[in-house]
């Protein structure tokens, strides 16, 4: 029996004349931390959006835990245990950090009726506080999310992706704009999560130091197609990748 969490088959997506993603296929195994790298505009974010229901791919098929998710709405996919972050900051600015994180979990609690007639925090305050502690955001708990610094908002954003206990998390440039200490912290958090919960990750990132040290396997996209795949060491020494992306 294989433990494939995410299976991507022949995904293509064009915008007018631009072939953003060309016939991409790969599998992600349970517990794996997969890095997705490539130059700007190589189609990484578009691929995420095709996988997660924000965009409809032109061709191809996506399976999560052996279930096809074609045409599934993002909310339904999230309920299947798939969390994500966006490349752009995506917190709810006029809600407190705590409220943001409760929101991220509440739709997985009870039914529409219990979410109307039950407790206003959907019984999630304790769990949200734990998540806040895990991401070391305690001092910001009751601040308005939109008033935090960029890096702090990034952490809240990441914390939200984990709130519902997903089995698969796709992160789009989690390290962008985050300072070194915070970055080390974030890497720590992701590793700890992976270890403690067996959560599978796919991470898009331009920070090579971050990707190479975090990921167990790396896929390189260029102009919408996969040009290389391997361990961090293999990727670092791959001539094609150096030419297309890593430079001299």
């Amino acid at each position: 029996m294989t433990d494939t969490v995410l299976s991507i088959r022949n995904i293509s997506k064009s915008f007018g004349g631009i072939h953003a993603v060309r016939d991409v296929s790969f599998d992600v195994q349970k517990g794996e931390v997969l890095g997705l790298i490539g130059p700007n505009g190589s189609g990484k974010s578009t691929l995420f959006n095709c996988v997660l229901g924000q965009l409809k791919p032109d061709t191809g098929e996506v399976r999560v835990n052996d279930q096809t998710v074609a045409g599934m709405r993002a909310a339904a996919l999230n309920k299947l245990g798939v969390g994500r972050t966006f490349q752009q900051l995506s917190v709810f600015p006029q809600m407190s950090v705590l409220e943001n994180i409760i929101l991220a979990g509440q739709e997985h609690q009870g039914t529409m009726a219990t979410r109307l007639f039950g407790p206003s925090d959907a019984g999630l305050t304790a769990e949200a506080d734990q998540m806040i502690k895990f991401f070391r955001l305690e001092h910001l708990r009751d601040e308005m999310a939109g008033s935090l610094s960029y890096g702090q908002q990034k952490l809240v954003d990441a914390a939200m992706a984990f709130m519902a206990g997903p089995s698969l998390v796709l992160l789009d440039e989690p390290a962008g704009g985050v300072n070194l200490t915070m970055l080390a912290n974030l890497k720590d958090r992701l590793r700890a999560y992976n270890r403690e919960h067996g959560t599978t990750f796919v991470v898009i990132e331009h920070n090579m130091e971050f990707v190479m040290s975090l990921c167990t396997r790396i896929i390189v996209l260029a102009e919408g197609a996969i040009i290389a795949e391997g361990t961090p060491d293999e990727i670092r020494s791959n001539q094609q990748v150096i030419d297309a992306y890593l430079g001299g």
């Binding site: 997660l52 924000q54 709405r73 993002a74 909310a75 999230n78 309920k79 969390g83 994500r84 966006f86 995506s90 917190v91 709810f92 600015p93 006029q94 809600m95 409220e99 409760i102 929101l103 991220a104 509440q106 739709e107 997985h108 609690q109 529409m112 979410r115 109307l116 007639f117 039950g118 206003s120 925090d121 959907a122 939200m160 709130m163 519902a164």
Partner: peptide, 27 residues
């Protein structure tokens, strides 16, 4: 003040993010 209210606010502030967190934004 219920979770519905929170979902309403989330819809106002960032519908795409809300949907990705399991909020059925249509409903």
């Amino acid at each position: 003040h219920s979770p519905w209210g929170r979902a309403f606010k989330a819809l106002r502030e960032n519908p795409i993010r809300a949907e990705s967190l399991g909020v059925d934004t249509r409903r």
